[in-house]
């Protein structure tokens, strides 16, 4: 592509004149591609980078009473200078007080455990759907997506009725004689795990399904013919080939789960202390937008590492596919 651009740019001086139609097609080929690529970049600029810049800006401001409740970074001094004031204290604050570190580690732990459970539940589901005959498969896929048709908030709320001490689950278990005293699930970390696994399961199942569906069954047949046991075939063939789906699904569950606020608030207890609650406290109780923004920035930095790993694996995967063709 680069070579093409070079040829068209230096077209005038070239000894052999290229036909105008070829030049137009080369032009469109390079710039058309740019145009198509420009749309997602514009999207990214508008809905990610711009808000990111605003949050970054607020994180360096100082708390003030007013609308909005923070100071300006730039001010014009009387002798005609622009003065830029950056308050680093908001970030220093995050290290001063152990609650931020505790909340971050809690968030990472809860997100990681939930992701593991989502994978355990989601993989057999995706596998089953991928192996199902075409007719039922469409229905099964539809069923995975169906919960999105009701509000997320209502679905999480419904779990309160299921999990509470005199709720559906406990009443069922007690009436079956499995337990004598109700299990305390609502108001504990387990409530949060269940809520996250339930809410984010489709994000795990769909990418897994996409990779498992592409899996060539003849590979497994060959393994079988060569005397490989099903379990070993699964471990050495299915699992490695499904890895991109596992990584994609896990990231899609893990990343939003870290910043989750609604689920721990409704299903967790007072000591389920995640970063979402910290943000709420800073924003709504202290009305301290600068510190709230600093917390958000720190969370973003914390999430960059897993996203980079994800990108890396995806890029490798894309390379591998390219080479295969």
């Amino acid at each position: 592509m680069e070579a093409g651009t070079g040829a068209s740019a230096g077209g005038g001086a070239a000894p052999v004149r290229t036909h105008w139609r070829t030049r137009l097609s080369v032009y469109l080929n390079t710039n058309g591609r740019r145009l198509v690529l420009g749309v997602p970049y514009l999207w990214l600029l508008l809905f990610f980078l711009l808000p990111f810049a605003i949050v970054l800006k607020i994180s360096f401001a100082e708390f003030a009473i007013g609308v909005p409740p923070y100071s300006d970074l730039l001010e014009l001094t009387q002798d005609g200078y622009f003065r830029l004031t950056l308050a680093l204290s908001n970030y220093a604050y995050l290290f001063d007080d152990p609650q931020y570190v505790i909340a971050y580690t809690n968030s990472l732990r809860i997100a990681a455990v939930s992701t593991a459970f989502a994978l355990l539940v989601g993989f057999p589901m995706a596998y089953g759907i991928a192996k199902a005959p075409k007719g039922p498969r469409t229905i099964l896929l539809f069923l995975v997506v169906l919960p999105f048709w009701t509000s997320f908030l209502i679905r999480v709320y419904a779990w309160i009725g299921i999990l509470k001490s005199n709720g559906l689950l406990n009443n069922l278990l007690i009436s079956l004689g499995i337990i004598d005293d109700p299990l305390v699930i609502l108001g504990s970390d387990w409530g949060v795990y269940i809520g996250i696994v339930y809410s984010y399961l489709p994000f795990m199942v769909l990418p897994l399904y996409a990779t498992l569906e592409k899996l060539d069954p003849s590979l497994l047949e060959a393994a079988h013919d060569l005397g490989c046991r099903p379990w070993k075939a699964f471990l050495t063939i299915t699992l490695p080939l499904a890895l991109p789906g596992i990584v994609a699904g896990s990231m899609l569950v893990f990343i939003p789960a870290v910043g989750e606020f609604v689920i721990p608030e409704l299903l967790g207890g007072a000591d389920t202390f995640m970063i979402g609650r910290v943000l709420w406290n800073e924003f709504f109780l202290n009305r301290d937008w600068p510190v709230a923004s600093a917390v958000a920035m720190a969370m973003l930095i914390l999430l960059v590492a897993p996203i980079m790993i994800f990108q890396h694996i995806q890029a490798k995967q894309a390379d591998g596919e390219g080479a295969g063709r």
Binding site: F63, I65, D97, P98, Q99, I102, A103, A270, D271, F273, N281, L285, N286, R287, D288
Partner: peptide, 19 residues
């Protein structure tokens, strides 16, 4: 005052979460 409010929120959070 805002300074006291921040301490107050922090203290209440300690009561609620134990942290």
């Amino acid at each position: 005052t805002p300074k006291y409010e921040r301490l107050r929120t922090r203290s209440w959070n300690k009561v609620k979460t134990g942290i």
